[in-house]
């Protein structure tokens, strides 16, 4: 097997989680790479939607921004942003929302707003964008994030978007009928919610990674499922398609590959 990076493993694990029939609301960055990798490999009919209004887009290179021309040129149709959020997202037409964040907690609540107090932040992050409503309106949520103690925290400074709240049936108590975060893909492992507590627990560890490494990179006392699988290593085809996608993207954006 070819060598691969932890980030490639993470992106490929995330792509594998998407199904051919999904309608996926895609964020910029790693979610976009994963969603397009899925489309170019096992899920050719997946419908990709970006919040700029592009429905059923098939970009040949990854967009730098959420509204690159490539997304519009290759879309089935492009709608206004109010229509996107009202009819398509709030209307319940999306099966999977793909999110990332700066901080995550054990119940997969996400922070992309501030580090430190809101009024006097240590770091001012970009803010929620579409995430607060994506998190509750999509059928389920996949999250992709590189794992470290700084980002996988015991307590969030700010809840930008709801995961499983305080755990258990918290979503239901808030009147939310969608599943919330069902998978969290990192560069070390895959988390899924515990059926009772909805705490994110490790269900699969990437090839060559140890439990100790996972524990060390998590800011809460991480739990492992009864049976923990080993994430299959990337196939040669997955790696080739992903690397070609990144190379095309770098050329298109005027950077050296």
């Amino acid at each position: 097997m070819t060598d691969y990076t932890p980030t490639e493993m993470m992106t490929i694990a995330a792509a594998r989680a998407l199904r051919n029939g999904d309608v996926c609301f895609v964020g910029i960055g790693m979610p976009s790479a994963a969603a397009n990798l899925a489309r170019l490999t096992h899920a050719p009919d997946i419908v990709l939607i970006y919040e700029s209004g592009t429905l059923g887009t098939k970009p040949s290179v990854l967009p730098l921004s959420i509204g690159d021309g490539e997304l519009c040129e290759t879309a089935l149709t492009t709608v206004s942003v109010p229509e996107m959020f009202r009819y398509w997202l709030q209307g319940g037409r999306i099966t999977v929302g793909f999110l990332g964040g700066a901080q995550i907690d054990r119940f997969a609540n996400l922070n992309t707003t501030v580090v430190g107090p809101y009024d006097k932040p240590k770091v001012r992050l970009p803010g929620g964008g579409g995430a607060p409503e994506i998190a509750t309106a999509c059928g389920e949520i996949f999250i992709i994030m590189a794992q470290s103690k700084r980002s996988f925290v015991d307590k969030l400074d700010f809840v930008t978007s709801l995961g499983h709240g305080e755990g258990g049936d918290h979503r239901e108590r808030l009147g939310v009928k969608t599943k919330g975060p069902t998978r969290l893909m990192t560069d070390l492992c895959i988390f899924e919610p515990d059926p009772q507590s909805n705490e994110m627990i490790v269900t699969s560890i990437h090839s060559g990674v140890t439990r100790a490494q996972v524990t060390e990179a998590t800011g809460w006392p991480v739990c492992f499922a009864h049976t923990v699988a080993e994430t299959p290593a990337p196939t040669a085809q997955e790696l080739e398609v992903l690397r070609e996608l990144h190379a095309r993207t770098a050329r298109a954006h005027g950077n050296a590959a």
Partner: peptide
């Protein structure tokens, strides 16, 4: 909120911010 402004309404109503801190 833009759509409500265009529609001459005083406010916009939607299903949002559930469980969020904003």
């Amino acid at each position: 909120a833009y759509e409500a402004g265009a529609a001459g309404l005083p406010c916009a109503v939607f299903r949002g911010y559930i469980g969020a801190d904003l």
